[in-house]
Design a protein around this nucleic acid. Sequence first.
DNA 1: GCAAGGTC
Length: 791
Amino acid sequence: MTTTLIIAEKFDAARRISYILSGGTSKQKRSQGLNYIEYSDKDDRTVMVPLSGHIVELDFQEEFRDWSKADLSRMIFSELITKVKNKTAHETLTRMAQEADRIIVATDYDREGELIGQEALNIIGVDADSDKISRAKFSSLTAPEIKNSFADLIKVDRDIADSAAAREEIDLIWGSVLTRFFSVAARRLGTNFLSIGRVQTPTLALIVRREEEIHNFVPEKYWRIVATFFKDEEFQGELESGPVKSKEEAEEILDAINGKDGNVIRFTMENVPIKKPPPFNTTEFLREVSKIGISPARAMRIAESLYTSGLISYPRTDNMVYNRTLPLKGIVEKLSKSPFSKEAQMVLDQEKIIPSRGKVEATDHPPIYPVSAPGNRALKGEYMRVYELIVRRFLATLYRQGLEERKEASIDIGGRSFITRGRKVLDPGWLEIYPYRRIYENFHPDLAEGETVKVISVNPLEETTKPPPRYDMGNILKTMEELKLGTKSTRHDILEKLQARGFIEGNPIIPTGLGIALIDAVTTVKSTISEPEMTAHLEDDMDGIANRRKTRDTVVNESREMLLVVLKDLDGNREKVKEIINKGLTKGEKIGTCPEHNTDVMLLKDRERVRFWCVTEGCQIKYDMFINGKVTSTEKKCPICEKPIVRIIRRGQSPEERCVDPKCKYNLQRQELGVCPSDGGKLIIRQSRYGKRFVGCANYPACTVTYPLPQMGYLTITGETCEFCKAPLLISTRGNRKWKFCPKMDCEFNHKGKKKASEKKVKPVKVEKKGKKTVKRKKTRKVKTNEKTAT
DNA sequence: GCAAGGTC
């Protein structure tokens, strides 16, 4: 009896490999908290152990524990220690290895996979060159590929593992040393630490540089000359030679063509296919999911959970082409017994199913697709939305393409040519299944060359050139991918980190004052750490190690020497670094323009306190408040006082927009609950200076009517008036409890008709637009809204 | 309380 131990990188791979090799006889086993798979063939027993990625991680020695005391230059050259990260895997491996006559490393066939295999062998304590050890080389989990790889085993490759190990060491050393330098220099320790890394810092730099571009952008005026024509209906065209730079030029053109008819000099009409989207790989999936308001990091966690519960395929993949062996039709049939039966049936009703293909054809895993229907395990909230997106995308890639009609004409008015375009969807095709895309249509009549069309008007439209847009979660992921920053499995994590550390916020992404200051400080010193090139260089070195042109030690040591130079340079600039970061923190950020002085209005956030001020000295705009939430700029002006409008995002609530002036009436206009019984004014929800909510009359201070409100719970406007005191009746929802009440606490309504009223069904109107999440959550988390208003 | 890379 011989025993073979096979080591896989993840459970999914272990299951499939053992299924293929055993011809379906493999059994999943569980012993003392360890999961593994086993099968036997006559005298051969095979045990398959799934890891979950890396089992160990590197760290510094104990002596460098204290950030303020550690000597960074010594740290650079210190020996690193290996810590076990996954105890269960460690235990399983050691136990199983004892019985094994031979060991096959079957981790993913890439650098990290080779290192993960090497880590496992190190734990078992066998020499990689031993005859007991071999390596299966496969690049997809398909039967022929797996069978071949196990029939033709190779040796483990120490050099490839070394190349990944070098990356690991360099990332840790550079990241930790620079993280500590900046944190200590700026005296930001504990949870406020500043972090630096090979991937996160260049990513932050991209965002900061884009913000600078926007800030430095000088807008220029231009005029579009737009003609409105009439045939059957109105349609518009624009001067074909493009916009003009001055108003005079625009007027000259208008004068020249004033009162003249249009003459069609060209007309084309064609039917153009609306191409199907490609299957989802991780990046595409995350780009799309961020459009429905779910952050990439959250979407990945949801996808992970959908994957482990067997609803979708492996979510970390580069592939955008369905493998030929994938039973597409079978999957659609499964989906016909899901909430998407109608869409699935539409796909099945086609004569032939032809899947779309994306540009990337990798062999790691198939594109992301639904594996099964949720059945009774009803998915809720964001889980359902993510699953639905994946299902609809999958079905869309299998449905027919759409068709649209495009018309285009050149119409001459007095010697000037105007171009007109029309678009009409003839067949939405896959768009019927995939509602996340919208196609804008516009009317255009059929024309003929030489035809005369009536010109209703020609107008110059004043426009200004726009700065480049901010990155959003979708296109920053794409840019990172193009610059080879991070991997499909880490990019979303990096972005979440930048957010959690307070360097960026919002979507579109805005760097915070701290984020900008950090990049400023990092670039005071010549170093590649804020450039994507650091990664490119590292990649080259890794290739060098894998090809045995270099060794792991020389690469890591060279990198250490480079870091030492950077550190020395930084050390000489310690004061400057501190100053830049502290200045960045007190500088604030521009959130609008002062209507009186036309100068910048600034915002400074420090934990929950928020300060707004105009940079002109002596200006009345100077407000200090407590706002428990994120405050961001809207670029809007208050319609009442023209001061900047800011957006406040509180956890679990939809954003509130308010004027920076706490006394401004704009802040009192919304959330109308009903009519004030005293003077007939609007009753609204207001916040006291201590952040308590209450009902008050919008005519304050002329009218001082107020009612108290329960501080917790979700409020719904009923539109009804209390029969006893004429105050507006409200419904409070907290967890499963729901009751109607009169805000006048001692009102008879609350004592008499209470029971009946709470059971009555009332159509709710939302008062505070809270996200569904908050409403559904059973334990209402306490959301403080301490806002010091100047009332 | 550091990084980035696997994966749960």
